[in-house]
């Protein structure tokens, strides 16, 4: 009977691996008991951080989504959008403070792989809002101050150079989306219509986008680092973003003159502009 045979085999395996330690306590048990509680503590912390990071990512995405409703730049964010985004910023700050004690001292860098996703997405939202308000790139220092505050008093949250750079890369995708939407709806490339001390500003989203690209391209990272790999991947995306905006602007220049003033494209036209962008 093959069946009873396998059962026998299974039982003998249990003898060998299961029952013997129970009969004769391993002298190493106390040591392993210590390891068990340390590892459990570590895994619990790790899970908490992973969960918070996911929440922060999702909430930051919602904030960015709200900010994409903005149509003008270098102006305060419209009240309605600020109002709907504020609870989201608060949620992020709550998520960070719930784990900020887990990310102090020795553990500051221990879980960077687990938290970086959330922090990058937060950086994306922060730098996008900063751009819309000030038409400039938020500095690492300023952004670090914002993340530090999120942890609550005495438990600053770290913003690494990698978090910053990768967040800025992602933000350029939002600039592209913002530029295309504004061009499609207003027929003009978004730029601040400001005269700075008598001088006409020639900057618009496209020139700004190129600026950021050039600075990011010049960053010299060791080839063996994981940051280098991540940046190379994101640089490809950034290049296509610039091209998409360039193509959209070309379309606007060629056809724009034919459009009557105040004419708005319908859904299909917006879609076509974007296809041209590819």
């Amino acid at each position: 009977m093959p069946q009873s045979n396998t059962q026998n085999k299974k039982r003998s395996a249990e003898d060998a691996f299961g029952e013997r330690p129970a009969k004769m306590e391993s002298p190493f048990m106390p040591m392993f008991e210590g390891f068990k509680s340390e590892l459990d503590e570590h895994h619990d912390r790790r899970e908490r951080i992973i969960k918070a990071s996911r929440d922060i990512t999702a909430t930051s995405k919602k904030i960015i989504f709200g900010l994409q409703r903005v149509r003008n730049m270098k102006q305060p964010i419209p009240g309605a959008i600020t109002k709907s985004n504020q609870p989201l910023w608060d949620l992020i700050s709550k998520a960070y403070s719930s784990i900020s004690t887990d990310l102090q001292g020795l553990n500051t860098y221990r879980y960077s792989k687990q938290i970086t996703g959330g922090t990058q997405e937060f950086m994306e939202a922060l730098s996008f809002q900063h751009y819309l308000e000030a038409q400039s790139l938020v500095s690492l220092q300023e952004a670090s101050r914002s993340t530090a505050d999120l942890g609550g008093p005495n438990n600053p949250i770290l913003l690494s150079e990698a978090d910053y750079l990768l967040g800025v890369f992602d933000m350029t995708g939002e600039l592209m989306r913002f530029a295309i939407t504004v061009m499609a709806t207003s027929g003009e490339v978004p730029s601040a219509k400001l005269e700075v001390e008598g001088e006409q500003s020639h900057r618009n989203v496209l020139t700004d986008l190129r600026d950021v690209r050039d600075f990011l391209k010049a960053v010299d990272v060791p080839h063996y680092s994981s940051l280098n790999k991540d940046m190379n991947k994101k640089m490809e995306v950034l290049e296509t973003c610039v091209v998409k905006v360039e193509n959209a602007l070309y379309g606007l220049t060629v056809r724009g003159a034919e459009r009557p003033k105040g004419w708005l494209p319908d859904e299909k036209m917006v879609g076509r502009d974007e296809v041209v962008g590819h």
Partner: peptide
């Protein structure tokens, strides 16, 4: 409003490059 006339204040990336270079040296 000099800070508003450029998109990227070049000191941002100078600082970052410095940090990356320091890290690379330590790593080596």
């Amino acid at each position: 409003m000099a800070s508003n006339t450029v998109m990227v204040d070049s000191s941002i990336f100078e600082d970052i490059q410095q940090k990356i270079d320091d890290d690379t040296a330590f790593n080596d």
